[in-house]
Every structure is written in C-alpha cells, then in structure tokens.
Design a protein around this nucleic acid. Structure first.
Lengths: 107, 107
DNA sequence: ACGAACGGTAAGTTACGACTTACGGCCGGT
DNA sequence: ACCGGCCGTAAGTCGTAACTTACCGTTCGT
C-alpha cells in the first residue's frame, strides 16, 4: 500500500467523489455508513473509494465495534503538500526574472 | 477557464502523463514539441494535455515565434498547496488527542 | 443463539477520457 | 511567394474506472 510513492495519491484525489470524502473526513472522522448518507452514491461505492484512499495512504481506518471509522492521514496529505511546494518553488525560482511579468525581453 | 476553482486542477493532476508534463515544466519552460520528444505519446496528445492544464490554471502559454512556450503557473500550484495545507492542518488539529496513537481510550 | 446492522467483495454494465491519425492555420526562412 | 516546421482541433477507437445489485462474513443486542 502506498508503494507507488505519491502517484496513487494524486490519482485518488483526481476523483470528485473521493475529494468530497476527504472534505467530510476533514470535518471529523466518520464511519462508512455516515459517509454514504451524505453522498449521492451507494454504500458499496463508498467502500470502494475508501479502499483507494487507504491504499494511497490518505486515510486510515480503525475498527470500532461493528463499525469502521475512517480518518485523514496527516502523513499522506503532508507528502502531497510538500511535493506541490517543490513545484511551486521551482516555478517561481526558475523564471525569477519575470515572475509575473510576461514581457518580451525574456530569453 | 479555471472557473471551477480547484476541481479542474485536481482532475488535471490525476493523470500521470500530465504530472510528467508538470515535472518537465518544473525544470524549465518548454515548447510543445520539446515536451512531446521526452514523452512516449504523440504531439497532439501533448497539446490536449496542455489544454487541460491551461484550463485548470496550472500552466500558462506564450507565443515565441512559430513556437508556443508553456510554463508552470505559481498561482495555480499555490492554490492547491494551500488547500492541502488546510486538510492537513484539520487532520492534525481535529484528532489532536491521538495524533498518531490509535489507542483504545478514544471515544 | 437468533436476528439485525454494519461493512467488504464479486460480477457486470456504462460512461468517460486518453490516445491515435488526419487535417487546417500560422509564422519564418529563402 | 512558396515551402517547411510548429501547433491546435476534429473525428474515431479503445481501455478503464465509477457505479450498480447481490452476496457473505462479522459484530452487537436481546
């Protein structure tokens, strides 16, 4: 799980339903049924999405009685943020002369 | 363009080829043909990906003679990073008691 | 111990998106 | 003015992933 590094995480966040799940879990940890109640899809569909998110290392699960509570994984989210930070920094530093100004003296 | 806020950006980064393009552009700005030369796909396919990235606000393009040079957009990347930062912060603060320790005194 | 609630998995359908080839427009050189 | 390189768009094919229903194991309550 999460063997790919962050590739699986990016692909996981590429789906809008999974982003909605992430937003729900950002509010507070929830069980599968709770998530399904707030989403326009069936409960098995939610389970499948949670499996993808879990394999990507973005959420963790925990048995609580007969229910299973999912929560966000700060490590997985932090890794993506750091990668974006790198791109963002390189985008700024790489073209430091222009930065925001697409003037024609460049190159 | 970029009307969706960040939804289009997330979906744009969900594709591995587009992430490869982002990495190439993080190195330095490039023309379409240059990108196609470093990728295992045809040039029209690169054009289509660049259109998606541009509509998502992740890259900007600029005419340079008969060529068209693409570069990363710090604004677009920064917006995604900030959103991840929010999730990450909420993930940590929301479950501050446990943080990393899935012990059973919770709840 | 039985029944109900909760959740994961299997199988199958369907829609979408990633790629190809073909074509047309624009700019630059000679 | 013509020709060649650069690029975007159109049309069409194909794989895949997102959903459904159906089924089964597990856990709690009575």
């Amino acid at each position: 799980m999460a063997t790919y590094g962050s590739a699986a995480s990016w692909e996981a966040l590429g789906d809008s339903t999974r982003r909605a799940i992430i937003e729900c879990l950002a509010d507070r940890p929830r069980a599968v049924g709770e998530l399904a109640a707030e989403l326009p899809i069936s409960r098995p569909a939610v389970s499948q999405h949670l499996k993808v998110l879990k394999d990507a290392g973005l959420v963790t699960d925990r048995a609580a009685g007969s229910r299973r509570v999912y929560r966000l994984s700060p490590e997985g989210l932090g890794a993506l943020r750091d990668q974006l930070e790198t791109y963002w920094t390189r985008a700024l530093s790489g073209y430091a002369g222009a930065v925001e100004q697409p003037s024609e003296e460049e190159q």
